[in-house]
Computed example of a mutant assay.
Amino acid sequence: MAIKHLRTAFASQYQPGQPARLRSGEPLQEPGGDYEALHKQMKRLFNSKPGKKYGRFSDALADSPFSAWLKDYLEDKQTFAALTDRLFGQWQELLSGCQEEFDGHLMVVHEALADQEVVYLILLETDGAMRFDGDQRLDSTDVLSLSRLNLALRVELDDWLGDQGGDNYLTLVHGRGTGEPGELFIRLCGFNNSVDVEKETLTFLDAVEAFAKSSAPEKAGEVRTRAYEFCKEQHALGEPVEIEALSSYLDEEQPQRFKEFASQNAELPDTGVLHPDHRKVKKLVRIAGSGGGLSLSFSSDLVNQAVYYDRDKDALTITRLPKALREQLQRYLESRET
């Protein structure tokens, strides 16, 4: 089984200023079955979540002792039950000072994969549902949401405790609208942001664009497309972009060509790893914009083939219209004429 240990706790804060309530479940070892299925779905949501942050544990252990507790557990100085008791206790304490109402299930998972071990902290959300009870009376209930994930942390244990060390062994999902509970979750995790995703996105885009322009004209579009595909695949796996792996993907015959070009023309991190935002990387293959009642999006390969831009007149000419768009225009004009 992939899951070595798992435990959940339900915490609620319905009256700000009053102590939060917490009910914890029993620690489970290799729970299998439905727990594996639930965790698999949460990982799928985690990997696909845009705007993730990357970092390391805070050095302020007095405020965020989770890293010290986790290390003691991994070194067999305390059990998983003791680790989660401490973690759940701190979560209850943090929520007791929260000025916003909150409820949710905190799930802690220690997962052992073939090539690595990871620990997840996941805030499970709930959705309302209707059902008939045993007397056929309509009743409302709460069920776990399998489509929403706004607060979660992943710890890459090998990267954290390995000889290489590093500053990017934590991955955080911190969705918008999580308010004060979201900030408290970050404190619970002891997360310290160490990666400027926006800067690394620009570095990635500039390096790929410069490499594409240096390639033969007929190959430039292929370079951009393959770079975007590689980035998208890594995002689906929840993994960053390794420059060496990308270089091999872009040119199998000369696998070091892009890596050497990028190292000379871009400020790459010493790790050789970038964390680009896959949503912005899409600019490599698509041109899009909206405003003033107009919204346009088309493949960059169509520029000067089916889409022509006149800089002097600031005008765009589009040929080879999509069939559906052409039919809509014709119907609209016919209705106006009648």
Rank of each mutant, 00 (worst) to 15 (best):
M1F: 06
T8C: 09
G25W: 02
E36Q: 12
K40E: 11
K40N: 12
F46D: 05
G51L: 03
K52A: 01
K53C: 00
S58L: 11
P65Q: 10
K77W: 02
L83P: 09
L87I: 09
W91H: 12
L94I: 11
L95M: 15
Q99K: 15
F102Y: 15
D103I: 01
L106T: 03
V109R: 03
D115M: 06
L124S: 07
T126S: 09
T126L: 04
R131Y: 05
S140R: 12
T141D: 06
L146G: 03
L157G: 08
L157I: 14
G166I: 04
R176S: 12
G177A: 07
G179C: 11
G182P: 02
L184W: 10
V195F: 01
T225N: 02
F230G: 00
F230L: 05
C231K: 04
P240H: 06
E242H: 11
I243W: 01
E244G: 02
K259S: 14
E260G: 03
N265Y: 07
E267Y: 02
L274H: 07
H278T: 11
R279S: 10
R279T: 14
L294F: 13
L294Q: 06
S295G: 09
S297E: 15
S299T: 06
N304E: 13
R311H: 12
R311C: 01
D314Q: 15
L329Y: 08
E337D: 11
